[in-house]
Design a binder for these strands. Structure first.
Length: 295
DNA sequence: GACACGTGGCG
DNA sequence: TCGCCAAGTGT
């Protein structure tokens, strides 16, 4: 099909979701908006399987924005454990503070207020508005982009970065009715996560394979240069990760010497990374010269 | 638009 | 083994 999604697609995906959608705790009707909000931030660039245990721990320890805002940002980073991109924990703490100071301690329900929170971009604002508050903003994540690229556009992969055309396509693909629109957001994302996957799509189990443009075209391999893979070994990101891990696992502040030992090969690299972490607020230096997570 | 930003599992 | 990839955001 070459037009935006129609009722056939909507119904097929919704029906599939009813049978195959995962029972994630933040999808329970009684889950507070705070739980939905945490799940969305934690899920950024992160597999759900790794989010689950961390989400459970956060919800037990900090069941409301007020509880998190009352603790230290360092504890947020510590509880973040190895989820990755620990600045997200910092932003979560900052956003909890904003909720306490400006939104009566609640997750704001207005899309514009959500978007203004630190660490919240187009995707997360739309997702929280739709999933937590039933306000059907168009959710466009990597799953949605891939599903639409295949079913509607007939391409194996979405563009390297989100384009205006993709956003417009996603908007046009939304059902008109509010309830259906919110259900569509969740269902199409789930389809991309479980069936219409990037590496090896399970087209044999796809509820819309019969009207998928890419499928009908014979699932052609995408031409063009492959995405450039990001290197890892020896990068600042790896060194920063080691330093934060050390700070996380230390009950007491650590010395400069201990930090230098996390990357023995290159002292200047450690120097630069530590400075970056201090700049980012992921570390701080005490009056005795030692380092710790932010207090 | 290109990059930086963590981490770990999978083919 | 190693590159790809996972519910992105900020600069």
């Amino acid at each position: 099909m070459t037009e935006a999604a129609g009722p056939l697609l909507h119904h097929a995906v919704a029906s599939w979701y009813a049978d195959h959608g995962r029972d994630l705790p933040w999808r329970e009707p009684e889950c507070p908006a705070w739980g939905v909000y945490l799940s969305e931030v934690m899920s950024q660039q992160t597999p759900i399987a790794r989010v689950l245990p961390i989400w459970q721990r956060w919800m037990e320890r900090w069941p409301t924005p007020f509880d998190l805002a009352s603790d230290t940002p360092g504890e947020a980073v510590r509880m973040w454990d190895r989820l990755g991109y620990p600045r997200r924990a910092l932003r979560l703490w900052e956003s909890a503070t904003v909720m306490v100071e400006r939104h009566d301690g609640e997750v704001p329900s207005e899309h514009a207020d959500l978007l203004a929170l630190p660490g919240v971009g187009a995707y997360t604002a739309a997702a929280v508005a739709s999933f937590a508050f039933g306000d059907p903003h168009t959710v466009v994540d990597t799953n949605v982009r891939r599903v639409l690229a295949r079913t509607i556009t007939g391409q194996q992969h979405a563009a390297a970065s989100l384009t205006v055309a993709e956003t417009r396509l996603a908007e046009r693909s939304m059902p008109g009715e509010v309830g259906e629109a919110n259900a569509w957001n969740a269902a199409v994302m789930e389809l991309g996560a479980l069936v219409c996957t990037a590496r090896s799509p399970a087209c044999g189990e796809c509820p819309v394979a019969h009207l998928c443009a890419w499928q009908l075209a014979g699932r052609p391999e995408q031409e063009g240069p492959p995405r450039r893979g990001q290197t890892w070994h020896g990068t600042d990101r790896q060194v920063r990760g080691r330093i934060v891990q050390l700070l996380r696992e230390s009950a007491d502040p650590v010395t400069r010497t201990a930090i230098a030992a996390t990357w023995p090969d290159d002292e200047s690299k450690v120097e630069r990374c530590l400075a970056g972490l201090l700049e980012d607020g992921l570390a701080e230096q005490g009056t005795d010269g030692r380092y710790s997570l932010p207090s």
